[in-house]
Design a protein around this nucleic acid. Structure first.
Lengths: 120, 120
DNA sequence: CAGCATCCCCTGGGATACTG
DNA sequence: CAGTATCCCAGGGGATGCTG
């Protein structure tokens, strides 16, 4: 028996999946892992993200205390985003996900192909 | 710079989130972590899951090679589900998520409360 | 027992246009 | 530059009922 033998544990893990599971969350966290960035820098660094979704994602992460938002009262506006200490602990965890993905994605793809082949 | 400094890395991590991010996936993986179980056992062990969603979740996990399905040709039908070796490696990873959740959920909840308070 | 099939609803997320 | 507002759609997921 490990950490996951009771349902409540899976429940809690789901909560963080809800927090990090958004389509763009990981990309944002990834981008902010190295350094503080401005809105437009993030926008350019994340291929395919719309203006709106980047805003929404940043708001959610900020609300959860994973990303900090610093506004400079200048014109034109300047806003900088960074990971909070909490966000940086997440970064380590997500590193584990990436490693696992690299190690097993081929395996999963093969399993899918085999499954689909069986069912035609 | 860590594992997450480039977007492609985040992309790959997203793929596994897509695979495991379903509402019931973690609960199923959790339930199967300890031992092989039958459909009804799983159903009883996971509070709130509907008949249909359990079926769908199991199919998806089976397709990805995370869960194995064994049918006994008897009547009444008997079907047993278990984690595959690949599934067990996932179990370890998810253990990390659970630990992180336990360590930081209060922090996140506090951040949310503070954020919501600021915005009224 | 294990599970498809059907119906329906709701939210996540895309496109686009407007502002301080 | 850094957003907000509005509209819209696909599909994830719930409820229920039928079957081998």
């Amino acid at each position: 028996m490990g950490v996951l033998d009771h349902t409540p544990a899976a429940c809690r893990a789901r909560e963080i999946l809800d927090r990090v599971g958004g389509k763009w969350s990981l990309s944002v966290i990834s981008q902010l892992g190295a350094e503080t960035k401005r809105f437009t820098e993030l926008s350019r660094g994340i291929e395919g993200v719309s203006h709106r979704m980047l805003t929404v994602t940043l708001r959610d992460l900020e609300r959860d205390g994973i990303v900090s938002r610093r506004v400079y009262p200048v014109v034109p506006p300047r806003v900088e985003y960074a990971l909070t200490p909490l966000g940086r602990t997440l970064l380590d965890l997500v590193g584990g996900l990436v490693t696992w993905a690299e190690d097993h994605l081929d395996e999963i793809d093969a399993a899918r192909a085999a499954y689909d082949a069986r069912a035609e």
